[in-house]
Simulated assay, not measured.
Amino acid sequence: MLGWFKKKFFQQEEPAVTAAAPPAEQEAASSRPPPAAGVEQQKPSMFKRLQERLGKSRDTLVHRLDRLLLGRKKIDQELYDELEELLITADLGVNTALHLLETAKERVKRDQLSDPQALKQVLREQILAFLLASNRPAELVLPESGPFVIMVVGVNGVGKTTSIGKIAAKFVKSGQSVLLVAGDTFRAAAIDQLKIWGERTGVEVHSGLPKADPSSVVFDGVAKGIAKKYDVIIIDTAGRLHTSVNLMEELKKIRRVIGKNMPSAPHEVMLVLDATTGQNALSQAKLFHEAVGVTGLTLTKLDGTAKGGIVANICHELKIPVRFIGIGEQADDLRDFDPQEFVDALFSRDDAGSEPQPI
């Protein structure tokens, strides 16, 4: 858990501690402990849950691919044309879909493939390659001393504040002290929700008055985190429409203000995206990245969407690492992103093992 962070900073194992319960208003409480290191029998159940939660995306991409290939005797242009349409409508995006298609054509020609079923393995390998290329161990700019500072951005409604609470719970479970900073001062509900998470996880929340200047609240919060020697500071920010010029200027200002207390901070700018929005999530990612330099992504609501292909699209287009994926409402349903595990779950067969039917 949190290998992208701990391997470079804390270098310690995570103790098996019961997951903190999320706010009752937002989601059901979770009391199941995370799997202890080395307990192999727990891995299948965790994988199965991921497999189940990606069911809608598997239907859109893999099951449709199975139906497309069923009964085909040869790889021809007609098959390529239908495959192109399938990939685009699976929210892989035009550029990514065309790249996958060209890769498939090259492999077919180079390896002299004739069985249409071979295309499925080619696509699986290339999607994994996209994810691995984007999610190589990131060279995080870590502080020589003082807290690790995460600035979290994203539009309203994507699950940003809830994700912050769940990420804070992960750090707490790994033995780190955490300070949450309520930088979204425009919505009293955002401050209240963050405070609920603080109570549930035993984490202090620094906040100002509603409508207070966000930069001032963040400046004071970072100063407190440094003075009290917290290990991690996680900063919530306002989340109006990503097309708002004022919002982007405000986020730029907050980023600068964080650096006044700690020149190397923020060490991570994490963007939270709602996977159900499909290609709009990619547009959001581009605009936020241009404004504040996004270094990591959290993709929420993958369990409720057929648009899981957006994960591969974002990785291919932006080359920004995916840190976490959300596959449910419980605390342990915010999972560290593992490219191999994700692809295995996406391309796996259902337990029923039903055979695909021709399109």
Rank of each mutant, 00 (worst) to 15 (best):
A291E: 10
L273W: 01
L100A: 07
K56W: 02
I167M: 10
Q126P: 01
G296F: 00
T243F: 08
T295I: 12
N313R: 10
S134V: 09
I233G: 06
L131D: 03
L297M: 12
T96R: 04
D81Y: 02
G183E: 05
Q12R: 13
K253D: 11
V245W: 06
W197M: 08
I233K: 01
V245D: 15
V245G: 14
A37E: 04
I127W: 00
P339G: 05
M1A: 12
S45Q: 08
V122K: 08
P263Y: 01
D220I: 14
L334N: 02
A189H: 00
E290D: 15
L247W: 04
A188I: 13
G304D: 11
P339F: 01
Y230T: 12
I196G: 00
R64N: 08
E355F: 12
L273Q: 02
D184W: 01
V158D: 03
E355L: 14
Q26G: 09
F342K: 03
L79R: 03
S57L: 04
N156I: 10
Q121R: 08
I314L: 11
L209F: 09
S348T: 07
I191Q: 02
V232P: 00
K120Q: 08
L68Q: 06
D213T: 14
A20L: 15
L273I: 15
L241C: 09
E125Y: 01
L65C: 13
V178N: 03
V217R: 02
D303K: 05
A28M: 11
A182F: 10
P23R: 10
I310P: 01
S215V: 15
T243Y: 05
L297C: 14
R136D: 05
G259D: 04
A21M: 04
G208V: 13
P23F: 09
T89P: 05
T161Y: 00
V272D: 00
L61Y: 04
A97Q: 00
D76K: 07
E204N: 09
A238I: 14
S30A: 15
E82H: 03
K105E: 10
